[in-house]
Design a binder for these strands. Sequence first.
DNA 1: CCTGTAAACTTAACGGATGTAAGCTAACAT
DNA 2: ATGTTAGCTTACATCCGTTAAGTTTACAGG
Lengths: 206, 206
Amino acid sequence: MKARQRNARGEGGQLREDILMAAITLIEKAGSCEGVSLRAVAKQAGIAAPSVYPHFADRDALLLAVLQKLFDELVELRTKAEEAAGSGAWERLRAGVFATVRFGLERPGHYKMLYEGRVISGLSDPKAATFGRAIQIRVVALIKDILAATPGREAEDAERLSLLLWAATHGVISLQINKPTLRWPKATTLVEELMRALIRPGAAAS
Amino acid sequence: MKARQRNARGEGGQLREDILMAAITLIEKAGSCEGVSLRAVAKQAGIAAPSVYPHFADRDALLLAVLQKLFDELVELRTKAEEAAGSGAWERLRAGVFATVRFGLERPGHYKMLYEGRVISGLSDPKAATFGRAIQIRVVALIKDILAATPGREAEDAERLSLLLWAATHGVISLQINKPTLRWPKATTLVEELMRALIRPGAAAS
DNA sequence: CCTGTAAACTTAACGGATGTAAGCTAACAT
DNA sequence: ATGTTAGCTTACATCCGTTAAGTTTACAGG
């Protein structure tokens, strides 16, 4: 791991990306960001521990950057899945939710960091709180569309339904990650049942 | 903290309880069991660090004992709540679920240890996996009763519904714990809506 | 009451890991 | 040749889990 090439004059910033990637790799391997030491990240990146400091003020700043990057990644995954799902609101919503489920099950360590991580440090919390917001906004819009097209439910609170859907989805992913010894039915199927129960009650049994 | 009285001849076992209590206190204060050091537990209990070893083989054994105790506590809380709720299956189920919600919100660190904690050590996991089982078994029975009394749903899979309910409930608690900066509606209300959507669809709007 | 002994608990210490600070060296652009 | 940048080495103070050995205390038998 020590065979790292020194970067050229203007490209010291390249290392920043490498450090982030190293941290992301280790966090997934460790299952969460706790216990991932700065030294381990440095070793994974092929550099000495103090070489992190020119790029990140301290360990918290590094973890916050990782959090940001992972959220961005999830938002993009979700966006692409929605776009690939066509134009129906229901299909788009389902595709987005499924994308999150897949993300969570394939990369449980990253998912836990995003949605089960405690406040990293006092100051960084308010910033981190806004990271996932983009998703929730689009979900509310989609649910509004679905409700508007469902006779008798036009006046229901889409915001509240989105919270319920989020909670239910997160619960399925979280339990499946944290209680892996139980035998779980297919997560996407469970989530689809929850979606139908909450948003399209008429089709509960698919 | 150093004014601890030495225990009498045969009652060294008293300290075991004190250590457990100290660990439980610190885990709640720290928000999870990671980062709670054996030395900190000892200091909280008013003893020196090595005095833990006559009572617990190592740190993992201590944490496992804490896990056991916390699960027992939650099971008892839930049992009492169900018993106080009368004889209706729906009311008993709701009371039990609400008790868990209250436990989670009042003691988020303990809840996270129970339901978001990773495997403590290789060997201890299979044992720990059975800890929460008692709850789920009773929930399935209650849901069976409810379904049997609901025309048209007698044949539905109570086991699967219990998983969905568990996931949805856990999702509400977990998100509310881990995203405390968002403004959340009352958790018990959210959970009751989920319960109605899943188990009593006819009464979705209360 | 005295005393021996075993339990309850302490202090000291080891080996290692951690985050971070200072200063140094090697490479490249000018 | 020189100045700046990239990254390294060394070092610090602190904490960790754990072991070994010693000390204090409570009680039983005389």
